[in-house]
Design a protein around this nucleic acid. Sequence first.
DNA 1: CCCTGAGGTCCGGTATAGCAGACATGATGT
DNA 2: ACATCATGTCTGCTATACCGGACCTCAGGG
Lengths: 287, 287
Amino acid sequence: MEDGIRQRTNGGGEIPVAGDERKETTADAISRGKPTRNATPTRARGLDRAVEIFQLLHVVRKPIPIGEIAKRLGAPRSTIYEIVNLFLAAGILEYSGKGAEVFFGRAIYLYANDYFATHAVVRLGEEEVRRLASLTDETCQLCMPVGNKYAVVSMQNSARLFRIGSDVGVLVPIPWTASGRFFVAHMTPAELEAFIPPEDFRLQDGRKIDPALFLAQAKSALADGICIIPGLVDEHATCVAAPITDHAGRCVACICFIVSAATSEQRMRELSAVLVESARKISASPG
Amino acid sequence: MEDGIRQRTNGGGEIPVAGDERKETTADAISRGKPTRNATPTRARGLDRAVEIFQLLHVVRKPIPIGEIAKRLGAPRSTIYEIVNLFLAAGILEYSGKGAEVFFGRAIYLYANDYFATHAVVRLGEEEVRRLASLTDETCQLCMPVGNKYAVVSMQNSARLFRIGSDVGVLVPIPWTASGRFFVAHMTPAELEAFIPPEDFRLQDGRKIDPALFLAQAKSALADGICIIPGLVDEHATCVAAPITDHAGRCVACICFIVSAATSEQRMRELSAVLVESARKISASPG
DNA sequence: CCCTGAGGTCCGGTATAGCAGACATGATGT
DNA sequence: ACATCATGTCTGCTATACCGGACCTCAGGG
């Protein structure tokens, strides 16, 4: 499934992935306003290619031929073969689908297991998502930031199902939902501008979000401990989110509901209370 | 492929991790009897370091400081910092635990989700493991090969719990269990010798397994469609496994019970029948 | 048949990524 | 106080990893 804003890559060197910033290497560099303007189309190194391959596989979400990877990345075939073969041997990628196609491998799966085991937030968060969804019969999600996007880590649809744009695991621009507000609430306007790719302020339906308004919403959401934003993912949907913080008080995840915009104020208050309670419970835990 | 004189770049310091063979790149190369001769301790490339980092994190199974990674890999600190920072920016690794420690990141988790979604075997296998464990009240596992080891992908302990040596995700030498038999049953003795590191034929209690006997057991297991081996993981445990095959008939996973060695023959037959049935059901599915 | 376009391998040259090691900093211990 | 150790950054030299491109095979399709 293509999600809207894809520009067909017409023989170019640009990766067709919706926003990514693999050029920035250190965490510090992200907040810096580094223009990333690199003049010469120069030789790339294997590690960068590797990351690009992972990101590409993630957005296509299905096995693709090795040659296709090279084509989409605008990279030399020989190089991609070399790298992919290395990862195949390590089990990080594996042949999948019809013969010549590759995808993520078992090793990745095991590594994710390790991640899961050490992260109480994810473990407990997924539990809470299931619990809240069955308790309230609303669509509930656990979201976490990934680079300059965020991802739905876990989702439970309500019985009276409501159309949801995003799938589990897909990277979504931060301005697109209420949850995103919490991930940037601590930033200055300059930091925000450096952090969010400009195109991410454009919603799926074409409307633009004003960065200043966005940041104001974020600050006020942080102060309130809850964020309610209507009409973002969908004209008829409202997003309610509460922040989950680590021991240092930084927002590391959000738990949220996607509800009908027609939901009564009374019920919104109830849902908010439930979210805040859940978020607090998870935040308290170590990890 | 007739010229054996190709000098595969075989450098790289030895990683102190129990067996790994990331140097062999193609599936074909695995069956070749390359002795992994290691020449000069030369400069390693970033991609190899990256794989080593992943494998190290996987075996320690908890966040560790970046400097510690360098030390354990015998790699220059500056290099490891560079690579780790790159992966931190991509969300593949992330700071975790106390400040300076790093571990697998959210991106890995999302990639694993993609893997899971495209692999019916894993999805259905995990279901079956839960079902069989509750049905029979025995410890049940789903196992898959990873490189020249195998991993427990999913495990459900029985109520009357029985001491199990391996944890989910840990890489285990193939000769150590009944399941392993199926992964190598198609090989010739020469292929087997090239594939399994010699030290893997030594069990935890020090006993050695004869490769010839091992292969004989494997062949007969394949013919029977079931494999019952007592006293491998533990003197008082017996391993029962059935193979799950892909559309081409190759064994891609095993589902197995770990039961007491005192289990009656009658019950072993019942358990075997259940396993075979489950394995057949999963094998039939596409993916 | 030949032509095209896949998948996959191999090779030599050169831009550059990795290495060694210095340096700054902040804990910790005695 | 000093000594020790760990984290993290930076720099210049040079071994080599990436690249371009040739090459082979196989599978259609006309």
